[in-house]
Design a binder for these strands. Sequence first.
RNA 1: CGGGGUGUAGCGUAGCCCGGUUAUCGCGCCACGUUUGGGACGUGGAGGCCGCAGGUUCGAAUCCUGCCACCCCGACCA
Length: 492
Amino acid sequence: MSKNLTSRAEDYSKWYNELVVKADLAENSAVRGCMVIKPYGYAIWEKMQAELDRMFKETGHQNAYFPLFVPKSLFEAEEKNAEGFAKECAVVTHYRLQNDPDNEGKLRVDPEAKLEEELVVRPTSEAIIWNTYKGWIQSYRDLPILINQWANVVRWEMRTRLFLRTAEFLWQEGHTAHATKGEAIQEAELMNNVYAEFAENFMGIPVIKGVKTESERFAGAVETYCIEALMQDGKALQAGTSHFLGQNFAKAFDVKFTNNEGKQDLVWATSWGVSTRLMGALIMTHSDDKGLVLPPNLAPSQVVIVPIYKNDKQFDAISEKAESIIKELKELGISCKFDKRTTHRPGAKFAQHELQGVPLRIAIGPKDLENKTVELARRDTLTKSIVEISSVSSNIKDLLTQIQDELFTKALNYRDTHITKVENFEEFKTVLETKTGFISAHWDGTAETEQKIKELTKATIRCIPMDNKLEDGKCVYSGQDSSQRVLFAKAY
RNA sequence: CGGGGUGUAGCGUAGCCCGGUUAUCGCGCCACGUUUGGGACGUGGAGGCCGCAGGUUCGAAUCCUGCCACCCCGACCA
């Protein structure tokens, strides 16, 4: 194993894969396309979960849990949804194994144990949930239902990449039921806003809120809202989606309610989700050639203390200082780890904590003991300073806030300088190949043009921004009239 | 699912074309000692059904056949 990561300039996707493995976030498993999320990576995911969960509850949602398996007949009920996911479903057909008579010591599927009806391993849970909601909803008094579930889902992807696209992934999926169309749309927009706020304020990832075009829309949705982020290599990443499902699932599962005028009506629905893919977004937004860079909000340890000593006496004196710093930080709500491993030398520890993105590092050695100082190093800027030990905790508190802000600002600057307006298709192709990033261009609104552009350039319409201002123009490809610009990019 | 490639120790590899003692090297691992302000050094040590199953041969990591797995490029996708 080489000591250094492949640089981003050399090979961005190699850099990404190495970083995930070397920073101990995740690794490939014995199961094709499925990853093992390791403790350090999972700790970051837990930070995301905790904050999202808090935000969901603050907006009135409750958690529940629905089955992993969906009977095929339920799965196929909403046709568009079923058709959209059919190609990537894992299906359970049998329920028992037996000893293989032709192959000693091996097992085989018991041909007698075939299921009456196949079970689809959920690629998403609308079907099983709406089948359940049918029993819960009779009157407008039963609405709204505002439920989220934390779960795993399976989508049998042809090609997978750690966190960005795995056959099984962790996510949350909200599924809400409403009495009116307006209320459901409001919910879908609200949750997209929650995602945007989470991405920007908590993860430090600037996002563009928008709606998807018809061809990019979630299978079964009437409208798909999304947040789109831009990665360091100029490719876009869909970081979250929120769908207004209209009455499609109510129709498919016959979910009706009596409104306050005594009339039967179909229920309006939304669903919304973010996944462990956010880990990929996190990595590709902030990290550098030395490894992961974590915004303080997401760091399992926000600060690490590395002791430097020549003998036990020095170590004891340093430990005393370290423990008192940790106590002060704890009172300020800051997490700090004292890396007192005797099995690694300071240089190795520095390198490891940089690789793992710990926002701040304190080093305490004999010189510091003498001068009543510590060395404080920032992961994001890789700068070091000598700080009086008496003021170190207040210093750190301010610095963490500053780092969180600066990471966002830096990413925002990059993003904003990588949205390019183009007026013709030549320019479109040139910008896409050389500058990369988002391209803001007029589009005639047809799926044909969208498809053609995708074939020619691999760029897709990432979204039609929410606050888009109307502007007369000509479609960048067809030359037809257009009333607004949309954002194109190559995407993950 | 189409095209290409690769399987040798925990990881990365040499050897394979042209069969022949004990399968190469680096990292990592273990023990002891010296070290500790940016990935330490020395000495010693452990670790291999050479992807699996057949075949050819006196002899196979090496040649042949079949199978399996994985990777890359396309198509598909959060």
